[in-house]
Amino acid sequence: MIIEAKNVSKSYKHREALKNINFSIEGPKIIGFLGHNGAGKTTFLNLLSGLIATSNGSISVNGENVFNAPAILRDICFVAESRNFQEEMTIAQTLKANSFFYPKWDANLAMELLEVFALNPKEKVRSLSKGMVSALGIITGFASNAGITIFDEPYIGLDVAARNTFYDLLIEQQTDNPRLFILSTHLIDEASELFEEILILHEGQLLFQKTAEEWHEHIVAVKGSPSDVEQAISGLKSIYKHTFMQELTAIVFTDGQSIEGQNIMLERVSLQDMLVYLSKQQKARTIK
């Protein structure tokens, strides 16, 4: 499966959610689709799922535009953060309805996962806790067997053990039935080891797209006196700067270049820290 976004923009009445997004991703692969709140992630995933139309540009899967393309959309399963299911339906009815939509639906897997997450198929969706609804979404995503399976904050309300079960299932499914998984989450420290490729949106734009192996070659923290750090990072794009106790920390894109300088220290930047820095940057701009 190949997803291509070409010059994608999406505007609402009072804001521009996405601004000229361009990228392509190819599976089977587990993609980390990341960004702070309001970065545009969910908007893009809604566009990819054909739920809304772009304002400009196009999103295609295997060369076909996804909007108003039922055949393509049957091979895309989008498990959103909320409102995935009809509250008056039982779990069994919900899974049955999904089986009609997804042609590769695996009913046996769905039943196995009901037991894994201890869900009663006779219960109505409206009676479920947030964690149970999340588990039902996870079951739907895996059982759909969709070539593109999207999980947007899939485990709200689930405890650590249940989240670890999700991660184990994700690895198992990618081994047994490889596909293009897209995972959007704020629990990055937990999930980062799963990602084979990372995309980061920031303020409606694509900030970064690299494989997991490339991450630490392209993002680095440079620490030292302000003058030494500024000299060392001259010509590089800075993502975030912070001065504390006369020490400057600069998070920069290296573009694969080596950083040299006297009296400076280079440190790795985790994905979780990167999102924290971007959030701080956004808040600083808002305050100004």
Rank of each mutant, 00 (worst) to 15 (best):
I251Q: 02
A250P: 05
A161E: 03
I52E: 08
V252M: 07
I91M: 01
G141F: 13
L48W: 09
F151E: 00
N98Y: 11
H14P: 00
S144G: 14
A39R: 15
F85H: 07
L201R: 03
A53Q: 12
T211W: 11
L136Y: 01
G63H: 13
F244L: 12
D176Q: 09
G35R: 14
K288E: 15
V160K: 14
F23N: 03
A92G: 00
V8L: 13
K104A: 09
T211D: 10
G204H: 06
I198A: 02
E172T: 08
T185Y: 01
P70L: 14
V220P: 00
R83N: 15
T185N: 12
K6C: 03
K13C: 04
L248K: 07
E214Q: 08
F44S: 10
S134F: 11
L95E: 02
N108S: 13
V125R: 01
N84G: 14
L48E: 06
P121F: 13
L201H: 11
M111H: 09
F181V: 03
P28G: 14
I156L: 09
S144H: 09
G40N: 13
L119A: 06
N20Q: 05
S99M: 10
D255N: 15
E196R: 05
E267I: 08
F208P: 03
S58N: 13
M89A: 05
L113S: 01
E88R: 12
S60T: 10
V66H: 06
P178N: 15
I156H: 15
A143R: 01
Q231V: 13
H218V: 02
W105R: 15
N20P: 03
S227C: 06
L194W: 03
T243Y: 11
T54Y: 13
V66S: 04
G57R: 00
Q174V: 04
S9R: 13
T185S: 14
N263G: 01
F142C: 07
S144E: 13
Y240G: 07
I233K: 10
H36W: 06
T254G: 07
K130D: 02
G224E: 08
L18Y: 06
Q281H: 08
A212C: 10
F44Q: 12
E196I: 13
L169E: 08
V61D: 15
Q93T: 04
T140Y: 00
V252T: 05
I76F: 09
S258K: 15
E214T: 06
L206D: 00
L95V: 04
S11N: 13
R268C: 02
K288Y: 00
E203M: 04
G131D: 05
V66M: 09
R126A: 04
G131T: 09
L206T: 01
Q272C: 07
T243H: 12
N22H: 10
P121E: 03
Y240L: 05
L47C: 06
G137H: 11
Q209G: 02
R163S: 07
Q246K: 15
L275R: 09
R179Q: 10
T43I: 06
D255Y: 14
S184C: 10
G147R: 15
A135K: 14
F101N: 04
K237R: 13
L236A: 10
I182N: 01
D106A: 07
G235M: 11
I219Y: 00
L271S: 12
E64I: 11
Y277R: 03
H202G: 00
I76Y: 10
A143N: 02
T254H: 05
R74L: 06
T43K: 08
I188H: 09
F33P: 01
E190R: 04
F195A: 14
I52T: 12
E203D: 12
